[in-house]
Amino acid sequence: MPAPLLELKGLQVEFTTFEGRGVTLDIDRLEVLEGESFGLVGESGSGKSLTALATLNLVPNPPGRIIRGEVWFQGRDLLRLPPREMGRVRGAQIAAIFQDPMSSLNPVFTVGEQVTRVLMHHQRLDRKTAYRRAVELLETVRLSDPETVGRKYPHELSGGMRQRVVIAIALSCGARLLIADEATRNLDVTIQAGIIDLLTELKCRTGITVLYIANNPAVVAEICDRIGLLYAGQLVEVGPSAAVLAGGGHPYTRALLAAIPRVGDTREVLEVTEGFPPDPIRPPPGCRFHPRCRRASPECQAATPPAVTLGPDHRVYCHHAGWSA
């Protein structure tokens, strides 16, 4: 098994608002292996984007604060790096793309110029070489006619093309880890499919590690080797995609898979989980899923569930793990 490139240990993020203070994110252990693509799945408010921010040590403070934990990346704990060092890691070794590509692009420069500048800065190339390399990169992200696209401004491109440009910029820094936070959420399905295919291809060709964050497990299944599921800020299950999506692990995983309608579905009624997502500031005690869980017993409310290993590299945080097996 390859070594972990990124490892989160005992990470807890606290939020303080007028309504109170609570541990919004509580991750026991999560590792992203070298060269894999890892999918982090959860509903909005489950803390998946917060995990990405914590990894980059960018949790907005206030209202948020990392109260404990370690984020190991290439042998260093990112949470204990001096700010300048961390700044270098963010640009050069970890790149991030977000839901809204416009927020990562400068509207007053052409996209070719933007990729060129990043290359000049990070790879210390002269302008001409950098420009040639920028065009190559735009071609790598499957933009047809990269020369022409390079001369355009962000607002002249469609959403899918912008996201491809952002990916090209991420690649141009020579990053080892690419964090894609809901990168296809606002895109149409046919455009989304193109980006998914691109990320899959890039992973194979460049060996870049991808941390893919999404709310749709079906999207993640297409890209990722391994999946982690978050519910209300807690990791509930992590393991190889196929094993997790088989649905035999955590009751939440089961509930989620049963709730999603599929094309060609013959079910008349979707299996429904009652209740509503909990307040992130005041999550339920113990296992945070227990108020909605069919298997809930008194111990689920009393104690945080332990990690139970179900198979190779497949663990579940549940007091009743393995019940369906």
Partner: peptide, 22 residues
């Protein structure tokens, strides 16, 4: 059916308190 534990306070009161806080 389990209900969420987070039923907030009456809106108006909460608004006034929150404004006071701000």
């Amino acid at each position: 059916m389990a209900l969420p534990a987070n039923r907030p306070r009456p809106a108006v009161l909460e608004q006034i308190r929150y404004s006071g806080y701000l």
